[in-house]
C-alpha cells in the first residue's frame, strides 16, 4: 500500500452541540483510512464529543457566537487533536473524581475521566482552555508525565 501523506487541518466549530457531528465524521473517516481500527474510532469519537461539550458548555458558555478551534493531524502512527475554546479556562486538577463517594451519584462530571481513559495523552495548556489529545495506533510505553497529564 502506498504510504499516505500526513493530514493537518484546522476547523472552527460553532458552539452548538450538533455542529461537531460532521467534523467528527470527517476525522473518523480520515483515521479509518490510515488503518486505525474500530476500537480507535470508538475512543476518538468519544473523546472528541466529550471535549467539545466541555468546550462549549464550560468554556464558551453556550454562546453561539463563539467558536471552538480544532487543530488536528493524522499520520500512520497517531492522531493528535488540539481543541481550544474562548473561555477563561479551568484547572483540570480541581475536577472531582466522579468515581469516589457521593460523586458516583452525580449526573455530571465524567467527561474528563472518559477522555483520559480513551486517549493516550490528555494535556491542558496553563490557562486551561486548550486540550491536547493523542491516540496512538500502536501503543507506546507512556512516561509518568503522560500518565499524570
Amino acid at each position: 500500500m502506498a504510504s499516505r501523506a500526513p493530514i493537518t487541518r484546522t476547523v472552527a466549530v460553532p458552539s452548538k452541540p450538533p455542529a461537531i457531528v460532521g467534523v467528527c465524521r470527517r476525522i473518523l473517516s480520515e483515521i479509518e483510512a490510515y488503518g486505525f481500527d474500530q476500537e480507535d474510532l470508538f475512543a476518538v469519537h468519544l473523546a472528541i464529543e466529550e471535549a467539545f461539550i466541555n468546550a462549549i458548555k464550560h468554556g464558551n458558555k453556550m454562546d453561539a457566537n463563539k467558536e471552538v478551534k480544532i487543530d488536528y493531524s493524522v499520520n500512520p502512527d497517531k492522531i493528535e487533536i488540539f481543541m481550544t475554546d474562548l473561555g477563561d479556562g479551568f484547572d483540570p486538577n480541581s475536577v472531582p473524581d466522579p468515581r469516589r463517594g457521593e460523586n458516583l451519584y452525580k449526573t455530571e462530571g465524567r467527561g474528563l475521566l472518559l477522555m483520559r481513559s480513551y486517549m493516550d495523552v490528555i494535556e491542558f495548556n496553563n490557562q486551561g482552555n486548550r486540550v491536547r489529545m493523542v491516540r496512538y495506533k500502536e501503543k507506546p510505553r507512556l512516561t509518568e508525565t503522560h500518565r499524570k497529564a
Binding site: F42, E49, E50, K106, T107, R110, G111
Partner: peptide, 16 residues
C-alpha cells in the same frame, strides 16, 4: 453502539 457521559447522567436521574 455509542453514548456520551451525558447519557450516564440521564441514567442516574432515571434510577433516582
Amino acid at each position: 453502539r455509542a453514548l456520551s457521559s451525558a447519557v450516564l447522567g440521564l441514567l442516574i436521574r432515571v434510577s433516582k
